[in-house]
């Protein structure tokens, strides 16, 4: 016997529930202070000498806040772009391909940025 809930579960256009919505809001809230910090960091460091930039990014508090921003921003990028893909791409195969590529891209951006921060922090 199948209950009505069991019949409809997983059949929505996104094949998932509110987890996606929640993750978008959670990262949005985390992004408010982190993006303000990120913007200030960019504005104060852009165009500065190599020595100044590496010294600033080498400070543990700066590196940690930047890593937190990178994590939250890339997670938000992933769920945000997935909604855009699901809204505009109606071909099932192409949609799934793009959703997969979206994950690869955002994870790639996040890992690369984190790696670069670690490299600067550790003075490598």
């Amino acid at each position: 016997m199948r209950t009505p809930l069991n019949r409809v579960r997983g059949l929505g256009p996104a094949h998932s529930g509110t987890g996606h919505f929640w993750l978008q809001r959670l990262t949005a809230i985390a992004n408010i202070p982190l993006v303000i910090y990120f913007v200030f960091l960019i504005a104060t460091l852009a165009g500065r000498s190599h020595a100044t930039v590496t010294a600033t990014l080498g400070e543990p508090v700066v590196a940690l806040l930047l890593l937190a921003a990178i994590l939250s921003i890339t997670m938000h990028m992933r769920v945000g772009m997935q909604v855009i893909i699901e809204d505009y791409i109606h071909d099932e195969g192409l949609k799934i391909t793009l959703v997969v590529l979206n994950t690869f891209f955002t994870v790639g951006v996040g890992l690369s940025a984190a790696f670069a921060v670690f490299r600067i922090s550790l003075g490598l």
Partner: peptide, 28 residues
């Protein structure tokens, strides 16, 4: 939002360039 999605590549590029002074001077 979409522009920022791809714009983050510029930020990653800048972070990577900070690996050595010569690349960084060029980006500056």
């Amino acid at each position: 939002g979409s522009a920022l999605y791809f714009g983050m590549l510029l930020f990653v590029w800048w972070l990577f360039a900070a690996g050595n002074a010569r690349d960084f001077d060029r980006i500056n």
